Simulated assay, not measured.
Amino acid sequence: MKILITGAENPLSNYIENRFKGTNEIYSFTRNELDISDKNLTYEIITDNKPDILIHLDSMSNIDICEHDESLAYTINTIGTLNVAYPCSILNIPIIFLSTSYVYDGNKNSPYFETDKCSPVNIYGKTKLAGEKLIRTLCKKYFIVRTGWIFGEENCFVNKVLNNSNVSMFVCSTETGNPTYVEDLCRVIEKMFNSNLYGIYNCGNPSSTTKSAWVKKIFNYAGIERRILEMPENFLRNTAIRPKNSSLNISLIKNCFDIELPNWESRLSEYINDKLKNQ
């Protein structure tokens, strides 16, 4: 299969490219090579390569930077997605768009379904949701994957925590979500390659947890004793609001693709054990 990947400079894209390149023909582009804010260039590259499927990973994903530069966030996450979706719609190319669990407002007391109302509380979520809507308007063949708290790729949150284990750790005590192991995300994406069950899907490892409990597990599995300083939500200034609850119901993935994801604790334990063995 011929796969085109945007945003090849980021660690998640590198992981996904390496995961699929053995059995597929991969065309990956960094933002310097494919500036998705350039409509004509984006159209030219996609139509020239004519992939069987496109995985759109290029994104302005730093939530706080998005909040401070709303114009750039919309340029990359919304207009850039429009520029990618348009040639896909013209050539009838299926597009896999990595979205975010931050499209939900966080006020629900239980995990979100794909059909729940989206009302993002920060610019990052708003720009990604706008990108979703453009894909749904333009394209007939699309998979929108809402996910968050991804770990397993280089420079992921777990690695950042472990690399800074000698300093005090401040973590929000109330923010809830689903850690998502990157390999399981790839398993879901791979199922979509040969599927026509287009639509929106939540993706994360069950079950939900708080950010502080996740960090405690990271230290626990790594055998590190470290005090976690828990803070109330949005305690720090100059940071974007995070939804209090971004946990996901993932039953649709199981029902549509016959795939059951393992719990995040087992995946985290495996990942950290592998890291320790390879040190």
Score class of each variant (00 low, 15 high):
102 Y>D: 13
24 N>H: 14
203 C>M: 14
99 S>T: 07
226 R>Q: 12
264 W>N: 01
195 S>G: 05
120 P>E: 00
194 N>V: 06
152 G>W: 14
152 G>D: 10
12 L>Y: 06
152 G>A: 09
140 K>S: 13
96 I>R: 07
233 E>G: 15
132 E>G: 14
125 G>H: 08
229 L>K: 08
91 L>G: 02
154 E>N: 10
118 C>S: 05
260 E>P: 10
81 T>A: 09
126 K>N: 10
151 F>T: 07
153 E>G: 04
113 F>M: 11
256 C>K: 11
146 R>Y: 03
148 G>P: 03
82 L>W: 06
14 N>V: 06
232 P>T: 01
245 N>S: 12
272 I>N: 01
213 A>S: 13
263 N>Y: 10
219 F>Q: 05
85 A>E: 12
169 M>Y: 00
266 S>A: 13
244 K>S: 08
147 T>A: 09
196 N>V: 00
216 K>E: 14
232 P>R: 00
216 K>A: 03
179 P>T: 06
81 T>Y: 15
168 S>Y: 01
46 I>A: 11
155 N>A: 14
9 E>V: 02
130 A>I: 01
187 R>K: 15
266 S>R: 07
139 C>W: 05
202 N>R: 07
172 C>E: 14
217 K>T: 03
116 D>N: 15
168 S>C: 02
49 N>Q: 12
55 I>D: 04
149 W>T: 01
191 K>Q: 14
104 Y>P: 03
254 K>F: 04
227 R>G: 02
171 V>D: 07
199 G>V: 03
187 R>V: 05
238 N>V: 02
26 I>W: 01
169 M>H: 03
269 S>I: 10
212 S>H: 01
260 E>H: 04
